[in-house]
Amino acid sequence: NQASVVANQLIPINTALTLVMMRSEVVTPVGIPAEDIPRLVSMQVSRAVPLGTTLMPDMVKGYA
C-alpha cells in the first residue's frame, strides 16, 4: 500500500506548503504520493485543505 500526502492541519487557500503541514498516511483513495513531499514544499494550495484531507494533484498549484 502506498502512502499519500495528508494535511496535518487546516491549510488556507493560497498557502505555501511547509513540511509541518503534511504527513504521510495510507489512505483511500490514493492522493499525491508521500515521496513527493519534498517537491511540494513552497508550492501553494489552490483551495482550503481541511485537517486530515488527502492532497490530490489538482489541489496544489503547479504540481500536476
Results as ranks from 00 to 15, higher is better:
Val49Gly: 02
Ala34Ser: 12
Ser24Lys: 14
Arg39Ser: 10
Gly31Asp: 01
Leu17Phe: 02
Tyr63Asp: 03
Ile13Arg: 10
Pro33Asn: 14
Met22Phe: 06
Ser4Gly: 05
Ala34Arg: 05
Pro12Ser: 10
Thr15Lys: 06
Met56Gln: 12
Asn1Ser: 15
Pro38His: 15
Thr15Ser: 13
Asn8Gly: 12
Ile11Asn: 01
Val60Tyr: 01
Met22Cys: 03
Gly62Tyr: 07
Met59Phe: 10
Arg23Gln: 07
Arg23Phe: 05
Ala16Ser: 11
Ser4His: 01
Asn1Gln: 14
Asn1Ala: 15
Met43Phe: 07
Gln44Ala: 14
Ile11Pro: 01
Ser46Lys: 15
Ile13Gln: 14
Gln9Cys: 05
Gln44Lys: 10
Arg39Met: 10
Ser4Trp: 02
Lys61Asn: 08
Thr28His: 13
Pro57Ile: 06
Val26Phe: 05
Arg39Thr: 15
Thr53Leu: 12
Pro50Ile: 07
Val41Cys: 03
Ala34Asn: 05
Pro38Arg: 10
Leu55Ser: 00
Ser24Glu: 09
Arg47Val: 15
Val49Tyr: 02
Tyr63Ala: 04
Ser46His: 13
Ser24Gly: 12
Ala16Phe: 11
Pro57Phe: 08
Val41Trp: 03
Val6Ile: 15
Thr15Asn: 05
Pro57Ala: 09
Leu19Lys: 09
Val20Tyr: 10
Arg39Tyr: 14
Leu19Ile: 09
Asn14Leu: 06
Asp58Pro: 06
Met22Lys: 00
Thr28Lys: 10
Arg39Trp: 11
Thr53Glu: 14
Val41Glu: 06
Val26Trp: 10
Gly52Ala: 07
Gln2Met: 15
Thr15Asp: 04
Asn1Glu: 13
Asn14Lys: 06
Leu10Glu: 06
Asn8Pro: 01
Thr28Ile: 15
Ile37Phe: 03
Met22Ser: 00
Asp36Pro: 00
Ala64His: 15
Val49His: 02
Ser46Gln: 12
Lys61Glu: 12
Leu10Asn: 12
Val26Asp: 07
Pro12Gln: 06
Ile32Thr: 00
Val30Cys: 04
Val60Thr: 01
Leu19Ser: 06
Thr15Cys: 03
Val30Arg: 14
Val30His: 14
Leu55His: 00
Thr53Trp: 15
Ala34Asp: 09
Ile11Ser: 01
Glu25Arg: 10
Asn14Gln: 09
Ala48Met: 11
Glu35Ser: 14
Asn8Ser: 12
Val41Ile: 11
Leu51Asp: 15
Gly52Thr: 02
Gln2Gly: 09
Met43Ile: 05
Ala48Trp: 15
Ile37Ala: 12
Ala48Gly: 08
Val5Trp: 01
Val30Tyr: 14
Ser46Glu: 13
Ser42Gln: 08
Met21Thr: 03
Gln2Phe: 10
Gly52Ile: 02
Val45Leu: 11
Pro29Leu: 05
Pro12Ile: 06
Met59Ile: 08
Gly52Leu: 04
Pro33Trp: 13
Leu51Asn: 15
Val45Cys: 04
Asn1His: 09
Asp58Val: 09
Ala3Lys: 10
Asn14Met: 09
Gly62His: 11
Gly52Val: 01
Val27Ala: 07
Ile32Gln: 00
Ser46Trp: 13
Arg39Ala: 09
Ile32Asp: 01
Val30Glu: 12
Arg39Cys: 05
Ile13Met: 14
Lys61Ala: 11
Val5Gly: 01
Ala48Phe: 11
Ser42Pro: 02
Ile13Asp: 11
Ser4Leu: 01
Gly52Cys: 03
Val30Gly: 13
Thr53Asn: 11
Leu55Val: 11
Ser24Val: 11
Pro33Lys: 09
Pro33Tyr: 14
Ala3Tyr: 14
Pro38Ala: 14
Gly52Met: 05
Thr53Ser: 09
Gln44Ile: 13
Ser4Pro: 00
Val60Phe: 05
Asp36Glu: 13
Arg47Pro: 02
Asn1Asp: 10
Met56Tyr: 12
Ile13Glu: 14
Gly31Lys: 01
Asn14Ile: 03
Pro12Val: 06
Glu25Ala: 11
Val45Asp: 01
Gln44Gly: 05
Leu40Ala: 01
Pro29Asp: 06
Met59Pro: 02
Val45Phe: 00
Leu51Phe: 13
Pro38Ser: 11
Ala3Gln: 12
Ser42Val: 03
Thr53Phe: 10
Thr54Ser: 05
Gly52Asp: 10
Leu40Phe: 02
Thr18Gln: 14
Ser24Arg: 13
Val6Cys: 03
Asp36Phe: 12
Ser4Phe: 03
Val6Leu: 09
Gly62Ile: 03
Val49Lys: 00
Gly31Glu: 00
Ser46Thr: 11
Asn1Arg: 08
Ala48Cys: 05
Leu19Gly: 13
Leu51Ala: 14
Val26Pro: 07
Gln2Ala: 15
Lys61Thr: 11
Leu17Lys: 00
Val27Thr: 05
Ile32Ser: 01
Val5Gln: 00
Gly52Lys: 04
Thr15Met: 09
Ala64Gly: 09
Val45Met: 07
Thr54Glu: 01
Pro12Ala: 08
Thr54Arg: 03
Ser42Arg: 13
Ile37Leu: 14
Pro50Asp: 07
Met43Lys: 15
Val20Ala: 11
Thr18Ala: 07
Ile32Pro: 00
Arg47Glu: 10
Pro38Glu: 13
Leu51Met: 08
Gln9Trp: 09
Val20Asp: 14
Arg39Glu: 08
Ser4Val: 02
Pro29Phe: 04
Met59Arg: 02
Ser4Ile: 02
Arg47Trp: 06
Met59Asn: 06
Gln44Met: 11
Ser46Pro: 03
Met56Ser: 09
Ala16Leu: 08
Val41Asp: 03
Pro50Glu: 08
Ile11Met: 04
Val49Pro: 02
Leu51Tyr: 11
Gln2Asp: 13
Met43Tyr: 13
Gln2Ile: 12
Val27Phe: 03
Thr54Met: 03
Thr53Lys: 07
Thr54Asp: 00
Leu55Trp: 01
Gly52Pro: 02
Val26His: 12
Asn14Ser: 06
Thr54Lys: 05
Thr54Leu: 04
Gln2Trp: 14
Val41Tyr: 05
Lys61Ile: 11
Arg23Ser: 10
Ile37Pro: 01
Val60Pro: 01
Arg23His: 05
Val6Tyr: 02
Val27Asn: 03
Ser46Ala: 15
Gly31Val: 02
Arg23Ile: 09
Gln44Phe: 09
Met22Pro: 00
Ile37Asn: 01
Ala48Ile: 08
Ala7Arg: 00
Arg47Lys: 09
Tyr63Gln: 03
Gly62Gln: 09
Ser46Leu: 13
Arg23Ala: 07
Pro33Arg: 15
Ser4Met: 02
Arg47Cys: 04
Glu35Arg: 15
Pro29His: 06
Val26Ser: 12
Val49Met: 05
Asn1Ile: 14
Ser42Tyr: 11
Ile37Gln: 06
Asn8Phe: 05
Pro50His: 11
Gly62Asn: 15
Pro12Asp: 09
Asp36Ala: 15
Asp36Ile: 07
Ala16Arg: 10
Gln44Thr: 13
Gln44Pro: 08
Ala34Phe: 08
Met21Pro: 00
Ile37Gly: 05
